[in-house]
Design a protein around this nucleic acid. Structure first.
Lengths: 125, 125
DNA sequence: TAAGTGTACTAAGGCACATGGTACAGTCTT
DNA sequence: AAGACTGTACCATGTGCCTTAGTACACTTA
């Protein structure tokens, strides 16, 4: 599924968030698919269920999953992302692009990189 | 110069790093220009000099500034960025691009955004 | 009924961050 | 030579977030 890095400065629940988000964005987890339960994922990653709960809670607020009490958590659709998440991403995108241009990369190189990213995304139709 | 956000989850020294990096990347601080001293910047931002010191130390390791004991710290040139920093940026760029494409943005929209970023960058020749 | 689901608490410990203080070596101005 | 400025290096302290552990409750499903 994905792995944790305890040497990373970022908190575990952030790594869980990014790991799940990545699986959904790349199509490894498709829309409507059931995610592992809080306790199950906690057991797999050998961490506390509370930490998983925190990650799920945040992902739900970002629009990446919805939850039904007693049934479980499920991956949301593409159009369900929050505006706040989109703004955050655009900020990260612009900052990275500006700095990479400063470091000598060309607009063509970055544009080509987007093409490759477009290939990775949405392999799930 | 730039401002701190105490409600932000990121540590202060990270915000200082990003603030200075942004000023250098956008040309507001040019190559070879002297940066404010550790104590001066600490006074301006109303924080501890140790925190500034930590930010400067990290920026030097990233290749964004060089320092001369007794004289001060100075903005480095474009070609002095570390490879590690470049790899970090490329990772952030790809991740943001992939997720934005998932959320419905087109490659053309992102490419156009890079053009605008290219306008902001390097206004200092 | 029993097992599995999300959710909500509380208590405790660990760790990074930030502060305050002191000190030293080097550079520059006077 | 003296003083003011630079970066740098400690140490001790407090705070807040993260993480764990444990318990409990409402709901769904087999």
């Amino acid at each position: 599924m994905f792995s944790l890095n305890y040497r990373d400065a970022r908190p575990i629940y952030e790594q869980v968030k990014e790991g799940l988000r990545r699986l959904m964005v790349t199509g490894a987890i498709q829309m409507g698919e059931k995610l592992p339960s809080v306790r199950a994922l906690a057991g797999t990653l050998a961490i506390n269920p509370n930490t998983i709960q925190r990650a799920y809670e945040a992902l739900e607020q970002e629009g990446y999953l919805y939850t039904i009490v007693g049934k479980g958590s499920f991956a949301a659709g593409k159009g369900d992302g929050s505006l706040a998440r989109r703004e955050t991403l655009l900020g990260q995108f612009d900052a990275a692009a500006t700095e990479l241009l400063f470091l000598g990369m060309t607009t063509e190189e970055l544009a080509h990189r987007i093409q490759k990213a477009n290939g990775r995304e949405g392999q799930a139709r």
